[in-house]
Each structure stands twice: as C-alpha cells, then as structure tokens.
Amino acid sequence: MKEIDELNLPDNLRYAKDHEWTRLEGDKVKIGIDDYAQDQLGDIVFVELPEVGATFAKGEEFGTVESVKAVSELFMPVGGEILAINTALEETPEHVNNSPYEDGWMIEIKPSDVAEMDALMDKEAYIKMLKG
C-alpha cells in the first residue's frame, strides 16, 4: 500500500471524493481514477465503460472497475456527454494500474457545465481529504 506522500497526484488535475481525476483539455474533459484508487483496488482486471453518446449527470454511475478484490462503481465527477471511451482498456485494463493518468484514462466528455469542475479538489485539498 502506498503512503499518501508516495502517491503520484499531478498538480494539473482536479480530484473527486470518489477518487476520479479530471483534466480539462480545450473544451473537453478527460476522466479516470487516480493513483490512490488504483493502489487500493489492486490488479485491475476489467473496466466496464458506457456507450459513446450517452449523457450522465454529475455523481451518476458511468461504469465499473473490477479488481481481484472487488467491483467498484465509477461516478461522474462532472456531468456531460460521452465523446470517447478508452477502448484499449478492454484488452489491457492494467493500464489503469500502470499509467492511471495517461494510458489508463477512461472517458472523454463534453461537460454540460464546465463550472462543475470548480467544486472538485486540487491536489492539496485532495491530499488533505485522504489524510482525513
């Protein structure tokens, strides 16, 4: 298990309390799960992602991530329409463990209200939450 100060939590991301990360790329938002979540889950063996074109509100479940330990829900950190999903995770779900912010990204969305990002935590606030 990684200590909190060993976690890789990039400065340029916003974090949700359910351990999803978001990255604003132009007018799109990329979403995945962070280093804390992948470390807690252990080997990720299966990722279930939504259809392109589906729309979810903030807080809604958009998929599941299955590790050897458990199946966990994935929640929308911001609402929006699914523009793309990372199909590489079908064959190589271990990307989520090995590269949670790059190869292991999960969905790309068109946010319905980009201001919802403001309610997410920056790295400092997220670390504070993890430390309880």
């Binding site: 298990m1 990684k2 470390d39 252990g42 080997d43 063996v45 050897v68 330990k69």
Partner: peptide, 22 residues
C-alpha cells in the same frame, strides 16, 4: 514490502504485495 493489508479473521494480513495478485 508495501503489502496491501486487511483484516482476515482476527489477523492483519497481506492481501497482495506490489507485484499484484495476478
């Protein structure tokens, strides 16, 4: 060794090490 620990029975035991369960 960085094991992910959890309680099993009365014991705090390793579930897996950084090598991963698989």
């Amino acid at each position: 060794r960085g094991a992910n620990m959890a309680q099993f029975g009365e014991y705090d035991m390793p579930l897996w090490y950084p090598t991963g369960t698989k």
